[in-house]
Design a protein around this nucleic acid. Structure first.
Length: 258
DNA sequence: ATGGCACGTATCACGTGA
């Protein structure tokens, strides 16, 4: 099974690119982030015409997640509420989950955090604490979990183009990295690092400063797998091709196969 | 030096992203 994640920075703006990518990359699951559209306005038909099922949790202008699946998903739900109860953290649409072939797919769009010490940074850390609790409870229900999405965190210095400059800044601060480590310690592993240990591989490049052309990137889009799935993983790759297109998203897809 | 670019909004600038 192939599971891809892609922050598309508006699914309506990127609609043709996403559909074309799906035609050429027959993944079973595509997790989207930053769809930036309310559910009623999600462009369902081009995906349905390819035979995909569509599950969405969106809002106006900001955030929004979706799962595109070859097969119908079971037990689809959104937000943290199903496991940890009602929370103000669910006002922003950042979590959608469903089951396929006894694998629980959890698609997340982790908050950006703005800058270390800001109110948004505090929100990001709160959100990460909630995610940790959500996953801890989910592990009582199933042992096969693939959590993927835009984490907005570079787990270690290999995931940054300029660690000396960027370590400690937003997306590379100690508390954010500790939050990732706490999730890993629940029983997950970073699928990409099973196959690639060196640095220089990124999933996001700033639109500004011609960052992509100079490979000034960050690896912030990840798949974390429970132990059996991790053992079964046979590849995890970053497809940089969509980032080269005209009017691209600033992120590019990452694909795991297990 | 907080800049650079892109997105959505009933814009003609702003908030947000990372």
């Amino acid at each position: 099974m192939k599971v891809a994640t892609w922050n598309v920075n508006s699914v309506r703006t990127r609609q043709d690119q996403v559909v074309n990518w799906l035609r050429e990359n027959k993944v079973d699951i595509l997790c989207l982030q930053e769809t930036k559209v309310v559910d009623d306005n999600f462009p369902r038909s081009p995906f349905a015409e390819l035979g995909y099922h569509i599950y969405v949790s969106g809002q106006k202008s900001y955030n929004g997640v979706a799962i595109i699946s070859t097969e119908p998903l079971e037990d689809v739900n959104t937000g943290f509420a199903p496991l940890i109860g009602t929370s103000d953290l669910d006002e922003q649409k950042r979590v959608i989950s469903g089951t396929i072939n006894d694998v629980r797919i959890v698609n997340v769009y982790i908050p950006n955090g703005s800058s270390v010490g800001s109110d948004k940074y505090t929100y990001k850390l709160r959100w990460l604490t909630a995610l940790q609790e959500y996953l801890r409870l989910l592990l009582y229900e199933t042992s096969n979990i693939c959590i993927c999405g835009d984490f907005n965190i570079a787990p270690d210095d290999r995931d940054l183009h300029a660690p000396a400059l960027l370590t400690g800044q937003i997306m590379a601060s100690d508390l954010e990295r500790q939050a990732i480590a706490a999730i890993v310690n629940l029983g997950f592993a970073d699928a990409f690092r099973k196959f690639t240990t060196e640095g220089g591989h990124y999933s996001w490049w700033d639109y500004r400063s011609a960052a992509f052309g100079r490979n000034l990137g960050w690896r912030i889009d990840h798949h974390y797998l429970t132990s059996d799935l991790y053992a079964q993983a046979i590849s995890c790759t970053i497809d940089v091709a969509p980032r080269k297109l005209p009017q691209p998203s600033d992120h590019t897809p990452v694909i795991v196969e297990f």
